[in-house]
């Protein structure tokens, strides 16, 4: 919510000052230092999944092959829940275990035939899954360097109500609405994800993350747009962003911790203020020790299905 407001503020500044010329330049930007990027998450009832890659120089090519060839393999990754320490299994797309092909294809958005020729790797835990209330310590060893972090799966917060409201000027279409009562403890943070019943993976709206600094302890309603509709070529422009009468969707409303939220808040802030000179150049704070970029986040989801009828 707050980031949305900030987004308006920044957007308007952008529009305001600058009816001017811009051109591409190539100036010297010194100080490139390659860093490891650790992108890890663990959820209730699901294994931990970690992606490792390297950061690239600003002028490095950004075509898809460069992106795909940036993934790291051969690292040692462990996750511990206090009693068990599990060494994660490395799964690469050119060597996928049986049954994983369709999942991997959907995740990357690439056809299986292309995937099996690429060396994209992820680390998956086989010996433990996420449990509410537990703290998970991550350790990554690569190129003789060690990186550590810890995250906790908090108690989930259930939405009081999840409903569809028809848009007055657009009959048959509307946003999804939710009613939430935030706990009086300051620092609760949430992530909103949603998918059509038939989808394999969840999608995120424009502002998936929010924290309670504006609404701590309050009960209120808010709306969220339909992110899947933007990628759907069959939907007309005027209906993009809305749920059609009769749609069935699954909302995944996850709780996350304060430190992890700071990563996502700054991340979306950077994404949406990209190009804005009035924004301060912010490095996204990582919760990982050792000099890595990225985040190790535990999510505590709460699920609900919504059929879009009044």
């Amino acid at each position: 919510m707050t980031s949305f407001i900030q987004k308006i503020a920044f957007l308007s500044f952008l529009i305001v000052g600058l009816n001017s010329c811009s051109k591409e330049v190539k100036i010297d930007i010194p100080g490139f230092d390659e860093q490891i990027v650790i992108d890890g998450s663990i959820e209730t009832g699901a294994p931990a999944i970690i992606f490792l890659s390297n950061s690239k120089d600003i002028y490095a090519p950004t075509d898809i092959n460069s992106y795909l060839s940036g993934f790291i393999s051969g690292a040692t990754v462990t996750v511990s829940n206090g009693t068990i320490t599990d060494t994660l299994m490395e799964i690469c797309t050119d060597n996928l275990p049986v049954g994983f092909e369709s999942i991997a294809a959907a995740f990357f958005g690439l056809p299986i035939e292309q995937l099996i020729n690429l060396h994209l790797c992820a680390y998956v835990s086989t010996g433990l899954v996420g449990e509410i209330g537990k703290t998970y310590v991550l350790k990554v060893i690569h190129n003789n360097k060690t990186y550590t972090s810890s995250t906790k799966i908090e108690n989930p917060t259930a939405l009081d109500n999840l409903f569809w409201r028809e848009q007055a000027n657009l009959p048959g279409y509307g946003f999804s609405w939710a009613k939430i009562t935030d706990s009086p403890v300051m620092g609760d943070a949430y992530r909103w994800e949603v998918k059509n019943l038939s989808d394999l993976f969840y999608s995120k709206p424009f502002q998936p993350f929010t924290d309670d600094r504006f609404y701590n302890g309050k009960t209120f309603e808010f709306s969220v747009e339909n992110p899947m509709s933007f990628k759907d070529e069959t939907i007309e422009n005027q209906y993009k962003g809305y749920y059609k009468l009769g749609d069935t969707i699954v909302v995944k409303f996850s709780k996350l911790g304060k430190k992890e939220y700071q990563f996502f808040e700054k991340k979306y802030n950077q994404i949406y203020s990209g190009g804005n000179p009035f924004a301060t150049p912010t490095n996204i704070p990582s919760n990982i020790e050792g000099g890595a970029l990225g985040v190790w986040a535990g999510f505590s989801p709460w699920y609900d299905t919504l059929i879009c009828v009044p």
């Binding site: 100080g31 230092d33 890659s53 950061s55 120089d57 950077q270 912010t282």
Partner: peptide, 21 residues
């Protein structure tokens, strides 16, 4: 200005260098 870029959750993110460099 950013000196490097990296990817997290399929989003491209920027990493900034030394202040005012």
């Amino acid at each position: 200005l950013p000196t490097s870029w990296y990817v997290q959750e399929q989003n491209l993110l920027l990493n900034y260098g030394a202040r005012n460099s």
